[in-house]
Amino acid sequence: MTSPAGERKELPIRRDDDVVRVRQLVRSYAQQAKLSLVDQTKLVTATSELARNTLTYGGGGVADVEIVADTRRRGVRASFIDEGPGIADVELAFTDGWTSGKGLGLGLSGARRLVDEFNLTTEVGRGTTVTVTKWGR
């Protein structure tokens, strides 16, 4: 669906400071979509976790961020796309406290709790795409 606002941008996630740029872009879109301050904070936090996952576990990738709208409301959708190793056991990856790396194991499960829509597709050896959406109230 195309957004009436037409705002859409793709950012690379290759280095630490790219994660900061993703956060800033998501915040700016969330403000434009008139999300409440709490919802902005939740969405930016979720995308920070997901961008870091893309960098740490996916070996880098891109973030595709856009302002979306349906008949009643506007929101922000962000996709995190990598061509990394994929996730072999998705259920395990969503377990609070479980981590395959050095994290706290809150990234995926925590991010899912902070957004309205969460979609994950992954294929071992091919990569992972996580798409999240937060709607204005």
């Binding site: 939740k42 609070d96 809150l106 925590g110």
Partner: peptide
């Protein structure tokens, strides 16, 4: 406050 709310929901 928004950070506190988010932290709790994040599970931290």
């Amino acid at each position: 406050p928004a950070v506190a709310i988010t932290l709790v929901e994040l599970g931290l």
